[in-house]
Write a protein that binds this DNA or RNA. Sequence first.
DNA 1: GATTTTATGAAATTTAAATTCATTATTATA
DNA 2: TATAATAATGAATTTAAATTTCATAAAATC
Lengths: 282, 282
Amino acid sequence: MTSLMQKIKEVLPQLSEAERRIGEYVFENPEAIPHMTTKELSKKSGVSEATIIRFCKSIGIGSFKSFKLALMKDLTLTDTNLTDFSVLNKKDSPYDLFHKVIHVNKSAIESCADSMDRKELAKAVEAIQHAGKIVFFGVGGSSTAAVDAQYKFTKLGYHSITSLDFHYMLSVIPHLTENDVFVAISTSGKTKDVLELTRFAQKKGATAIAITTLSKSPLYKEADIRLCTPNVEQDFRIGSIPSRMTQLTVIDTLYMSIFHHVGEKVLQQYYDARSEMESLRR
Amino acid sequence: MTSLMQKIKEVLPQLSEAERRIGEYVFENPEAIPHMTTKELSKKSGVSEATIIRFCKSIGIGSFKSFKLALMKDLTLTDTNLTDFSVLNKKDSPYDLFHKVIHVNKSAIESCADSMDRKELAKAVEAIQHAGKIVFFGVGGSSTAAVDAQYKFTKLGYHSITSLDFHYMLSVIPHLTENDVFVAISTSGKTKDVLELTRFAQKKGATAIAITTLSKSPLYKEADIRLCTPNVEQDFRIGSIPSRMTQLTVIDTLYMSIFHHVGEKVLQQYYDARSEMESLRR
DNA sequence: GATTTTATGAAATTTAAATTCATTATTATA
DNA sequence: TATAATAATGAATTTAAATTTCATAAAATC
């Protein structure tokens, strides 16, 4: 707990009804406050603007502006702001939602650190490094990560494949061999299409890397290498937003790691592509 | 040196006379700025208030208020919490890189708050809400965001279109009307294909929303609505990783906002899709 | 040399913060 | 119990700050 938040908590019981309401709101949504106006906060917490000014004075701060600055400073000092943003509420404006999305995505990425196993990661990098083809597959929200991965690894000079089309994939997999890698992306680890293609790829000898949540799912059990994403499911309205961020973070890591290894080799092609792009500007 | 101050130092030589004066003043008195008003700073640095607003935009920050907040945050960061992850080094293991990726992505998402303009965001939500068709277009790294957006808005029941194929897009755009929205995604704002399609869409009467960095790029100038992403360019090896995160954060915000509005209506379809998915498990 | 573009500040507008004041609820006192 | 005193509150107003618009001058381009 930071000093300013601490202070608010302490004085909370001594405050009047309306001022306490503000304090409670601040306590629940500290991140949001610095970007708010008195009018907004007044609406959200259900008290008048005048009371907000009074609240600032009550906690010993001269103005609402100073309060916002102080809070920003306070929040910066601690990264452990465990705000429960799962609570979306009716009155949220797009700008409010924007800040909630920022928060949700930030914490999702943060929590990636918890679920990743360094040995599995090393194995994955090893496998991809020596791969001939890399096939990525994910459906629904997970297709974004697959598309992103396919683009990134193509840039690195890999024969990298993805498609949303199950039947297209069915025609790709028979050509996989022991050297190849199949990356299955599924948050739940239960998606039928993903499972079937993974098994098929394994039957052809490819190494199956799963990007999935740590759970007793079939995909988790059957994959050769498991890159676990944290369980970040929240309010259904937020849906796949945070889990996609975690998947992308894993993809980014694979990309960076491979770049690190093969970097020198592809650097020239990389520059070529860049300068050509500059000149074409497309 | 902290990141924002660093940034100011870097752009200083490219700024105009008056804007540079502000930059220099900020550099000499960083601690004072967060408590100042535009009028004060204008007097102190000897330039007009308007130029101060322009200065903020020049360094990639959406408003003077955001600038003050960002600076406060920046100054609060001590060397201890300033792990310099921007530097990649040779000995980095995949696991090291993983943590650097986490850091880079987190800060990218965090800095989204600086460049977003709430009015523009509100306009964008308004436009999309009443849109018939929504077309997303981005090339290269920005295609990920386009794909993600297309999927999300389809789930909300919109006629939502994207493609990587320029010529396919050329065949889509003639059918756009005043009610439709074209969302152009380009970090630089200079990508030729994106620009050409944007102009074409505007000619057909569609509203052009740009997701791009705050800069003097053609896309920024010409778009009807600008949703600015921060300038997060780093080491070339990290490449488009952070900018893609910022684009996705903007997309997520649009999605959440629209969901908020049309949510009740599509909820039933949403559940239908979910339960059907459960039963099919594919 | 004419024309466009860019940079700039003055003035106007919009938006936010802070204050005032009237109203209501609460407590203390006759 | 009735009445005065006090405290809490929000509506309306005032003040201040941020932002935009517009006119002008300087620089760059044709």
